[in-house]
Amino acid sequence: MRSRVLAALAIGASLFMGGSLPARAQEKPDYAPYREGLFLRYLNAEPGEIDGVPRIGLSLGGRPLRAVIDSGSTGIVVAAEFVPGFETMPSLGPAKLTYSSSGRVMLGQWVVMPVTLSGREGASVTTDPLPVLVVTEVQCLDYARVCQPTNAPRNIAMVGVGFAREGDSQSQSTPDKNPLLHVTGGEGARRQGYILSPEGVHVGLTAANTRGAFRYVKLDRRPDGTDWAPLPGCVALGGSTLPACGTVLVDTGVSVMYMTVPEAQAAGAQGTLPPGTQVAISIGTEGSAFPLYSFNAGDGGPMSPSAIHLRVADDRTFVNTSYHLLNGFDVLFDGEGGYVGFRPR
């Protein structure tokens, strides 16, 4: 796998040569003082490559649920059937979260409670009390791909651990709702953050679990100061030497890639990309981005998405990588320091 990553980097480098990396892209955080970390193996982890949306145990005081761990959203979302008596629990009021990829809109209440997350081998972490979206109704956007409206939702269990999602129809999805940033317990200093891998998630950043060739990007703050800004990145299609730049989302909740590029970059493509089209993804801002990986549409490679949904528009450039990126990189998010890191596998 490492040879495939290096080959992808070599291809990407030929497309993104130009200015040297800015200081922000070279900064490296110091995790030496931290020892509090735990590895939670996905409930559906298999040896080798990840080939499905990862699941993790979620306990709200009762039996553990098999929940999706989703880096494309922020906040725990569960059907009301799993929280009996929630009406009498402490609440922050009405709740709403929209999953833009599927078009599903979750409505309910933000109920405050501690939660426990667990892995396949029994390891677990518990959070401070935090808001949990207890879903009482599901609505559907007009463009919804997979959605059935209901006033009696069932079998909904999501653990959203993403950042900077407020601008994507998730205005209430603020960092106070991210369970992996509010883990409690332990005897020493804890750095609130995590590392996603194909087999599981490291909860808490330490000197040990951050070893290796991580390449870091320092995020900006949102203008209102409430969260970090999205991860900047660029995409070049078909060997273009003029990439389109915007933001990149590493989303463990989907198997397909969602991409928005301007007409000049799409080169006539609509809806999806023709088989064999080269896709090169870089991280950073225009003129200083470093190559991350590349693939050819439909090549079936380990980091290639199962499908590509292409939107052609000039309003923004955006790439949702899907969980397949984890077959080439461990992905770190430091919620305290505002770093994202990529470690080749």
Rank of each mutant, 00 (worst) to 15 (best):
G160A: 05
R24M: 00
G268N: 07
S197H: 10
G246F: 00
L237M: 03
N327D: 10
E137A: 15
L43V: 05
G12Y: 00
M17K: 08
A157N: 06
V261D: 04
T127N: 08
R63H: 13
L60N: 02
V256W: 15
N296R: 15
P179R: 06
K96A: 15
P90D: 08
L9D: 01
M257R: 13
Y34H: 08
Q26E: 14
A307T: 00
V261M: 04
R222T: 15
C245S: 06
G341R: 07
D227I: 01
A80F: 04
R311S: 15
L21N: 03
R190Y: 13
C140S: 10
A152S: 14
T226M: 11
L65I: 11
D142N: 14
T150H: 01
V78L: 08
F329V: 07
M303R: 06
D30N: 15
F86H: 12
G298A: 03
E263R: 14
E263G: 05
L273S: 10
R222M: 15
G239W: 00
G18Q: 04
A32D: 14
G19H: 02
V5F: 07
D224S: 06
P131D: 14
L242W: 10
A32K: 14
L60T: 01
A208Y: 13
P262Y: 12
T184F: 07
S197N: 09
L219H: 02
A123M: 11
V261G: 05
D224R: 09
R104P: 00
A13R: 11
V201M: 09
I56T: 02
V159Y: 11
C147K: 11
E137W: 12
N327F: 08
I281H: 00
G239K: 01
E187P: 01
L40Y: 09
T210H: 12
R222Q: 15
D220Y: 05
G341V: 06
R63W: 09
T150D: 04
G338I: 05
G18M: 04
A23E: 14
T88K: 15
G61H: 08
T272G: 05
G75C: 04
I69K: 04
G204E: 04
G52S: 15
